[in-house]
Structures are given as C-alpha cells and as structure tokens.
Design a protein around this nucleic acid. Structure first.
Lengths: 108, 108
DNA sequence: TTTATATAATGTTATATGCTATAATGTCAA
DNA sequence: TTGACATTATAGCATATAACATTATATAAA
C-alpha cells in the first residue's frame, strides 16, 4: 500500500509538475538566473544590474519583463530609477538550493 | 566591501550559472520531472514507469535518454528489464526543493 | 532636453515534442 | 542454436514554438 497512485492523486501530481516546470523554464536562462542571484543579495535598480552583470539594456529589460510577468520579482519606483527585488518564495527556495549546489565553496 | 565583484569572481559566477542552467533545462519538462519524482521514491524499470506515468514507450525512452546523457540517472540491467535510479546529488537537491514547494500539503 | 527604463518589431536560429518505424539486446522454448 | 517474443533504445521526420539579439522608438521623471 501507499504505492498505488489514485487517479486524483495523479492529476494533482501532474498539475504540480506543470507549475514546477513553468518556474523551471523561467529560471533556465543564464541571464535571468544571474539576475535573480544578484537580487538575492538585495534590492537593485536596473542601471546597477546593467553594470554589474554586463547585459545590455534592452536585453536586460526584456528578461526583467519575463521575471515580472511570472511574478518572480516586484518593482518599486524611486525617481528615475526602478528598483527590483525577489518576490516569489518558490523561486527563492530554488535559488538557494542552486547556490548551495553550484556555488558552494566560494567563501570559507 | 564584499559588494564589489572581482573579474575572476564574475567569471566563476557566470560558469556556475551556466552549469545550473544546464540542469534546469533538463528539469524543465513535465515528463522528465514526473519521471524524476517517481524515481525519487526508488529504483524503477522502464515498463513500470510507462504504466505508472502513462507516457508511451518511445517518448519515455527518449526522455530517459536525456536524463542518462546528463548524468541524472544511472541504469542497471536485470534480465529483460533495465532499472533506473537517481544519480546526481544536485538534481536530487532540486527535486526535493521542488517537492517541498509544490507538493507540500499532499499528505497530512 | 536628458536620463532611465520599457516595449515593439523583426529576423534568425535553435529546441522541443511527438510520431512511426526499426534496431538492439536479452529470454526462453524447442 | 535457432526462432519467437518481450523489453528498451534509436533514427528520422515534421512541426510548432520560443529563444535571442538587435534596432528603433516610446514613456516617465527630472
């Protein structure tokens, strides 16, 4: 017992996989991942990210747009600048796991 | 201090992001994700996965091939059957995180 | 008008996905 | 050892989709 998967359980599993996949697809891009890692250290405005990550403006704005549309980041305007920060617990959890796995021994 | 990113650090960051992305791309497919979740419960042979997940044979074998090529799973032959199991600590970590985030309140 | 950011429009290229068909490998019986 | 069968893997397509960079332009605030 407990090995049998009922219909409804399977449907639920399938739905969860779909949602998880959606998130994974958004994360599966080096620019976006780098952006999110950068934002994991705190709020940041677009022009600072442009300098920090060396991504040029329209590309950056486009990728930020994807992150916004998917609810991974939230924005706040301050004068001319727009500040971004992480906004999704699920994606933060994944980012943390990724950092633990791929950036482990960076600082002692 | 500690906010400045040196050149080599950036290169390393970029390399890590690339590797992480590679893994994320493999995970970002519902069939593969479901397979991995299923394998997270233990070793399983192809025909059983076919039944359990209702993916038809060539598709299943193709996706398993992707997982094999990327080193996420390992195989073992036993007679006519080939058994698969998880083989990558990084992907196991992500799967666990995903399950915690997306399949949380499944059983009390 | 200038600076900061977003969007549009576009072209190219790559990737994903799902088929059908067939190959390869192992088992077992005769 | 051969033949038939079961299990799994691959090949080869067709098609949809989306990824990406680029140029140009729009919006919004100062």
């Amino acid at each position: 017992m407990a090995k049998t998967i009922a219909q409804s359980d399977f449907a639920q599993l399938y739905a969860s996989a779909g949602r998880a996949c959606g998130l994974l697809k958004v994360l599966a891009n080096p620019d976006r991942l780098l952006l999110l890692c950068h934002l994991a250290e705190g709020e940041c405005c677009v022009s600072d990210m442009e300098v920090a990550l060396d991504i040029h403006q329209p590309t950056l704005s486009q990728q930020l747009g994807v992150l916004r549309d998917e609810g991974l980041v939230a924005t706040r305007r301050a004068g001319k600048h727009i500040y971004y920060k992480l906004a999704s617990p699920e994606s933060i959890a994944i980012i943390n796991t990724l950092q633990a796995q791929f950036c482990k021994p960076s600082k002692k």
